[in-house]
């Protein structure tokens, strides 16, 4: 088995091997540590000139990456915790994503900002958040979130080597030890893979089940929980669902269109339940639901969101569990919809 962590690490190594314009900047990157979550392990040994361990200066390292990108390199900046992304938000919003458009197409900023998000590790209110929704909708920013359904390292490598847009690459930290799925591990599912630009979208249903009555949609680690919920809904409650898992959270299709795979599933099911680890209101799910309502009108029979409670994430395990969405939450929301 390959874990998500190993896959990401391989993706970084592959990007470094393929293109000498690739650099990595971040805190505590040097081996043997290799970054707080070890995604960058081995790189500083193999590419000492191109891996720069940095001061604790999130705004500056992201800005330095931007300046390098502006001048033709392909830097990756590792932010140790996604919670710290607030410290570099000005760089992202007022410089990095502005330059290409405000300089009338004459500048490119191909920087990839990688960062772990998410809770379930007991790190408390400032090291457990899922903050990517703050950056969804920033014009010019591509936000990617890998999952286990396809190779996260390949997605990262392509983001580094092939994308001229700035990318925020969100890695849920509970996802790191999970196994990347294979045809064998997914053998109970019918799996369709489509693409949003270069980012995969997966549609899953259990083999041999009746037409779906509900579409579930989730990304990142929550897609894992949602897949488990899908299976249990079928076996324990005879509610048959499809699951649509995007990896590109932004930009979304123009003019308020739905992601085609999601639209196709909703045409079959007529109901949409989104699940996310960000807080409930004004988030990713809300946007999907709005687009679904616009495009399906009265063919949409029910919508619902499962998300994190609107409060800081507590450190105590039982309180943290209660604040974050669970398989049970998804199952009970689904049961209320059909």
């Amino acid at each position: 088995m390959t874990s998500v962590l190993e896959s990401l690490n391989r993706g970084l190594h592959a990007a470094f091997a393929e293109d000498e314009r690739v650099y990595l900047i971040g805190e505590d990157l040097l081996d043997p540590y290799g970054g707080a979550f070890k995604v960058s392990r081995g790189l500083s040994t193999q590419y000492p000139d191109r891996v720069w361990t940095s001061p604790v200066s999130e705004a500056a390292i992201v800005g330095v990456g931007a300046g390098m990108a502006l001048r033709g390199l392909r830097p990756v900046v590792e932010l140790m915790f996604g919670d710290f992304s607030t410290l570099m938000a000005d760089q992202l919003i007022n410089s990095i994503t502005k330059f290409p458009a405000m300089y009338n197409g004459a500048a490119k900023v191909p920087v990839v900002i990688r960062t772990p998000m998410g809770g379930r590790r007991g790190y408390g209110p400032t090291h457990s958040q899922t903050l990517e929704k703050l950056y969804l909708g920033v014009p010019g920013l591509r936000v990617l979130a890998p999952n286990t359904l396809s190779d996260p390292g390949e997605l990262l490598k392509r983001a580094i080597l092939e994308q001229d847009d700035p990318v925020l690459f969100v890695e849920n930290k509970v996802l790191y030890p999970k196994a990347v799925q294979t045809a064998e591990t997914l053998k109970d599912f019918e799996v369709e893979q489509t693409q949003t630009e270069f980012a995969p979208v997966h549609t899953l249903r259990l083999k041999g089940t009746p037409a779906p009555v509900l579409t579930l949609s989730a990304y990142g680690y929550i897609a894992e929980l949602t897949r488990e919920a899908l299976t249990r809904l079928a076996f324990e409650h005879e509610i048959f669902c499809e699951l649509v898992v995007p990896t590109q959270l932004a930009p979304l299709p123009a003019n308020g269109a739905l992601e085609p795979a999601l639209l196709a599933s909703l045409e079959r099911s007529g109901r949409l339940l989104t699940a996310e680890e960000g807080t409930f209101s004004l988030g990713w799910g809300a946007e999907q639901l709005a687009r679904a309502a616009q495009h399906l009108g009265n063919r949409l029979q029910a919508v619902r969101r499962v998300a994190a409670a609107e409060q800081p994430i507590p450190a105590a395990r039982n309180l943290e569990d209660a604040a974050l969405p669970s398989v049970e939450d998804i199952i009970s929301a689904a049961r209320e919809m059909v």
């Binding site: 500056a60 300046g67 390098m68 001048r71 330059f99 004459a106 500048a107």
Partner: peptide
């Protein structure tokens, strides 16, 4: 932005970007 000239209106925001540009030229 024209040729190798860039300006931005958020005070100080250009500092790390200019440093990054300088480091890129050094590396190149």
């Amino acid at each position: 932005h024209w040729k190798d000239f860039y300006s931005n209106g958020v005070l100080g925001s250009t500092a790390p970007i200019a440093v990054g540009a300088a480091l890129a030229e050094k590396r190149k």
